[in-house]
């Protein structure tokens, strides 16, 4: 298992999970989010390639109402 920080919360995920796998588990459409991994923005085409490791920090954001 790997412990990561997802949107500021500690989360345990399966080992060798990619960002793509995590989004699938969270039932989030990749079209509706953007992701920052350890401070770097990850392009959607790289979601399958990017494997999450222990202590990784992930920010998953979306559009909400705003002025």
């Amino acid at each position: 298992m790997a412990k990561i920080q997802l949107n500021g919360r500690k989360v345990v995920i399966k080992p060798d999970s990619s960002i793509f796998d995590l989004l699938k588990k969270l039932k989030l459409s990749q079209k509706k989010v953007a992701i920052e991994h350890n401070g770097s923005i990850i392009q959607k085409i790289n979601y399958k390639k990017k494997i999450l490791k222990n202590n990784d920090k992930l920010e998953v954001v979306t559009f909400i109402g705003g002025g």
Partner: peptide, 28 residues
């Protein structure tokens, strides 16, 4: 105009803005 915020990972069933406003039909 729209804001950028963290996805609510605890309540994934909560509706999101793009369920109601389509960025293909209106400029975000």
């Amino acid at each position: 105009t729209v804001a950028v915020r963290r996805v609510n990972i605890l309540d994934k069933k909560k509706p999101i803005l793009t369920d109601y406003l389509n960025p293909k039909k209106i400029i975000f």
